[in-house]
C-alpha cells in the first residue's frame, strides 16, 4: 500500500517520532516500498492457518508470590536525565 504524506505524519505521531518536514517525502517513499515488499504475503491463502506468536509451543511459567526485590533506588535512577526527591521529572503533565 502506498502511503501519502498524511499517513506518514500520522504514523510518526502515533510512534512519537519527530520527523523533519523535509524528510517526510523520503519516508513516504521508503515505507511504501517496504510495504510493497511485505504485501508479497498476500500471494498465499492462509484462511485455515493458525497464527504463530511464539516459535516454541511452551506455556507460561509461574513465579512464586515472593518479594525478592530490595530498594535500589539510587542505583536504578542513576541514568535519569532529570530527577528530584526520588522522582523522575518530566514537563508538567496536564490531565
Amino acid at each position: 500500500m502506498a502511503l501519502d504524506r498524511s499517513d506518514v505524519t500520522n504514523i510518526a505521531d502515533l510512534a512519537r517520532l519527530a520527523i523533519a518536514e523535509d524528510n517526510i517525502g523520503q519516508y513516504q517513499e521508503e515505507l511504501s516500498s517496504i510495504l510493497a515488499l511485505v504485501e508479497q504475503m498476500n500471494a498465499v491463502n492462509t484462511d485455515d492457518v493458525q497464527p504463530l506468536a511464539h516459535p516454541a509451543d511452551a506455556v507460561q511459567r509461574l513465579r512464586a508470590d515472593v518479594v525478592s526485590e530490595e530498594n535500589q533506588r539510587e542505583k536504578y535512577m542513576a541514568n535519569a536525565p532529570a530527577q528530584e526527591n526520588g522522582l523522575f521529572l518530566v514537563p508538567k503533565v496536564v490531565e
Binding site: R63, V67, E69, G86
Partner: peptide, 21 residues
Amino acid sequence: KSKIFSGSSTAFGAEPNTQAS
C-alpha cells in the same frame, strides 16, 4: 505480596520509587 511480573513489594505508601525494580 509482590507485583504481577516482578518481585517488588506492592505495599502502599512507600517512599517514591523505592518499590520499583
